[in-house]
């Protein structure tokens, strides 16, 4: 589904990714770990099509199609979704209005008519329930005044609504208490199936107790330095990253 081939990228003339290789098949859950500043969030942003990040070398293939030149909205139409580490506050636009616009614009790109209001409402209710969200939350301005936990829950709510092929979760666990973490992780797992894939970016192993990865990759200094199964994450939790530096 996602194939990243020797990806190099820079922002403001600063090289961040220095040759990333990654292959995710459908039905798989991959986790990316790594110390601060190693390029994890950059990778998420580059996959999503953030224009500030300039790809200088290499390719991103999504469903065997190179998507390097697609804009963020076009990638979303293809089925790429990113859960933001820091979701942006947008005053004056309600969660409902936002998600309706997002879904209908995506449908439009596929030549489909708008989703009917009743169908939309039903889906919104169902997914809000999945994430244990209050209904008044849907009429609030997007992320404005949301707690950290509410913001992250809202991201996964959007993921559940958009039903992407690939969900990139950028530090979705940061700022969450254990109860919220369980709800969010549970939401992700309920949406995960044989046809889609998840890429989890995290600092901590604890999220991976709930979203259990098939593969774990460690990024350091813009490169994947080690890949393994879920035990790799457990080892890192105990011993940190230093041993990987030495083996590099």
């Amino acid at each position: 589904m996602l194939e990243i081939d020797n990806l190099h990228c820079k922002i403001d003339d600063k090289s961040i990714l220095k040759g990333i290789n990654l292959k995710i098949k459908k039905g798989e859950i991959h986790a990316i770990m790594g110390p601060n500043g190693s390029g994890k969030s950059t990778l998420a942003n580059v996959i999503s099509g953030h224009e500030d990040y300039q790809v200088t070398k290499g390719s991103i293939y999504f469903d065997d199609k190179e998507i390097n030149d697609l804009s963020a909205d076009e990638r979303a139409h293809e089925g790429v979704f990113m859960s933001f580490q820091y979701p942006v506050e947008i005053p004056g636009v309600t969660v409902t209005n936002f998600i309706k616009t997002a879904i209908n614009e995506t449908r439009k790109s596929k030549g489909l008519d708008d989703m009917s209001s009743s169908e939309m409402l039903k889906k919104i209710r169902e997914k809000a329930n999945l994430l244990d969200m209050d209904s008044n939350f849907l009429s609030r301005s997007l992320n404005e005044g949301f707690s950290g936990g509410e913001k992250k829950r809202n991201e996964i709510f959007q993921m559940a609504m958009m039903e992407p092929k690939l969900a990139v979760l950028d530090e979705t666990d940061s700022g969450l208490d254990i109860d919220a973490l369980k709800i969010v992780a549970n939401g992700v797992m309920k949406c995960s199936n044989d046809e889609n894939a998840v890429l989890v970016i995290t600092h901590y192993q604890r999220l991976l107790d709930y979203i259990v990865p098939d593969k774990v990759h460690v990024i350091m200094d813009g490169k994947v330095v080690k890949s393994g199964n879920k035990d790799l994450a457990k080892k890192i939790e105990v011993v940190g990253y230093d041993w990987l530096k030495k083996s590099k």
């Binding site: 099509g49 909205d73 933001f84 947008i90 004056g92 636009v93 998600i99």
Partner: peptide, 29 residues
């Protein structure tokens, strides 16, 4: 806000519509 624009675009909302949505939000009061 460029980050807000990216946020909206990453949800499949094209640039023109994203600008419109942000404008509405700004004008909502």
């Amino acid at each position: 806000n460029k980050e807000a624009l990216f946020y909206l675009k990453s949800r499949g909302i094209p640039e023109k519509e994203a600008i419109a949505l942000l404008t509405y939000g700004f004008a909502n009061n």
